[in-house]
Design a protein around this nucleic acid. Structure first.
Length: 420
RNA sequence: GCGAUCGUAGCUCAGUUGGUUAGAGCGCCGGUUUGUGGUACCGGAGGUCGGGGGUUCAAGACCCCUCGAUCGCCCCA
């Protein structure tokens, strides 16, 4: 069977049917909401020079060396399939002179690639929605961005069971002071931490805060809080974001353990989290990344953004059935196949969905058509030498049924007793 | 990179402590009931039991390796 057929690449997916409908529903909803908030559409390349991602991501060596899809092109240049949108958008912003549009609200969506082990809601080629506000340093930008995210989740119908967790990482100074305090605190209890967290103490101490290990959690509760290290400006900024969210009617909860691994993040960090997706509970996440543009050689540019996994959103949206067939036409005799085909074409040109059943055993075509549960089932046959048509409507009645019926009657007869 | 579970027809699965020609339902194709009918009945196509090696008189079943899937750990930009 398939022993000679190439297999799909690990972690890629072929999406079809109801799942594909759910996927499309997510994207369509995003496009609609994004226009309400006047975010402008952008399209970027799916690959960039590796340095675009390496420089923006910085020193987190694991991510750069092990988690990216990188390769050399024929000229020997290292290229990388985009693992995120933000770095590519920042590069486009700088290289295309989009500064002239600042503050710029951008939205995009499409495939991303990460060299990871697939698991629930996590693939090597996956798809995200993305929204960014570039060149806006005010907390109102954070609020607007979060309000859009909140409305998106509501319009997708998945807001129940999803909570917005919010934190601040402060400005560069407060962030650094906090980090130092954390390292000191955890170093004192180093031997009682999990093996993973002992490792993290050196590489990425902030990550200890969201460890899943019970041994770590005991200490996390009493760990130094960012609030104790925030300068007045940082405090004001966060207060403005939270009061702005309250004013906008966006519910949120404080999660002081919510962190970002990368250094360019400042101030607001947030995640919309659900308890319905196993280990991959984050449904939409982002934050303020005021330090990113400089790492790519651009001028200091404040920016804030988020991304959301389309697959995960689609899973929450659930079964999004394919739309019902409006009219099925069965040619129950070979002599009526041309008529049936022409009827189907007529309906389609009217903007009504129609499907032709004219293959296989003529006797079974009617049953086959009936199984699709169409709004209207038309059979076309030959009885005693005469062409015969039958029109059967089933509930719920389709839109424009009368119009379709009149159009059909203008070309083919239907006996009176068969009407309704 | 690590761990657990799993891998039999297009799909969902059976397959007894290893025993002879590998099964069912659904789907598909064809044929009956000369019919207004999502029915019923009959027949058919489709499997080197993920792949390779080993144990055995005998392996879909047991052992090893490998590939793949699922879920979790690490990581999460």
């Amino acid at each position: 069977m398939a022993n000679n057929t190439p297999q799909a690449i690990r972690g890629t997916q072929d999406i079809f049917g109801a799942e594909a409908e759910a996927f499309a529903f997510v994207v369509e909803t995003f496009e609609r909401v994004r226009k309400l908030y006047r975010f402008r559409r952008a399209e970027m390349p799916v690959f960039e020079k590796t340095e675009v991602f390496a420089r923006s991501i910085g020193e987190t060596t694991d991510v750069v060396s092990k988690e990216m899809y990188s390769f050399e092109d024929r000229g020997g240049e290292s290229l990388t399939l985009r693992p995120e949108f933000t770095a590519g958008i920042a590069r486009a912003y700088l290289t295309n002179g989009w500064q002239q549009h600042a503050p710029l609200k951008l939205a995009t969506h499409g495939p991303l690639f990460r060299y990871e082990r697939p698991q629930k809601g996590r693939y090597r080629q996956f798809h995200q929605l993305d929204a960014e506000i570039i060149g806006a340093g005010e907390p109102q930008a954070d609020v607007e961005l979060l309000a859009m995210a909140d409305q998106l989740l509501k319009e997708l119908g998945i807001a129940d069971g999803v909570t917005l967790q919010l934190n601040t990482l402060g400005d560069a100074d407060s962030r650094e002071a906090w980090r130092t305090a954390l390292v000191e605190y955890f170093r004192d209890v180093r031997d009682e931490l999990s093996e993973d967290s002992q490792e993290r103490l050196e590489k990425n101490p902030l990550r200890i805060l969201d460890s899943k290990d019970a041994r770590d959690r005991a200490f996390v509760a009493d760990a130094p809080q960012i609030d104790d290290f925030l300068g007045a400006e940082a405090q004001d900024f966060f207060a403005a974001v939270t009061s702005g969210l309250d004013a906008a009617g966006v519910a949120w909860t404080r999660n002081s353990a919510l962190v970002r691994g990368l250094d360019y993040y400042r101030h607001t960090a947030f995640e919309f989290v659900t308890d319905r997706l196993g280990a991959q509970g984050t449904v939409l996440g982002g934050g303020r990344y005021d330090g990113l543009m400089e790492s790519l050689g651009g001028p200091a540019t404040p920016a804030v953004g988020w991304a959301a996994g389309i697959e995960r959103l689609a899973m929450l949206v659930g079964e999004c059935g394919e739309s019902r067939l409006e009219i099925a036409v069965a040619a129950e005799s070979r002599d009526r196949e041309a008529d049936a085909a022409s009827a189907v074409t007529m309906f389609r040109r009217m903007g009504i969905s129609a499907e032709l059943f004219a293959s296989g055993s003529p006797r079974k075509r009617y049953d086959k058509a009936r199984k699709t549960d169409p709004g209207v089932l038309i059979s076309m046959d030959v009885r005693e030498g005469n062409n015969v048509q039958n029109w059967l409507a089933t509930l719920p009645e389709i839109d424009r049924q009368d119009e379709a019926f009149r159009a059909f009657l203008s070309r083919w007869d239907i006996p009176d007793e068969d009407l309704k």
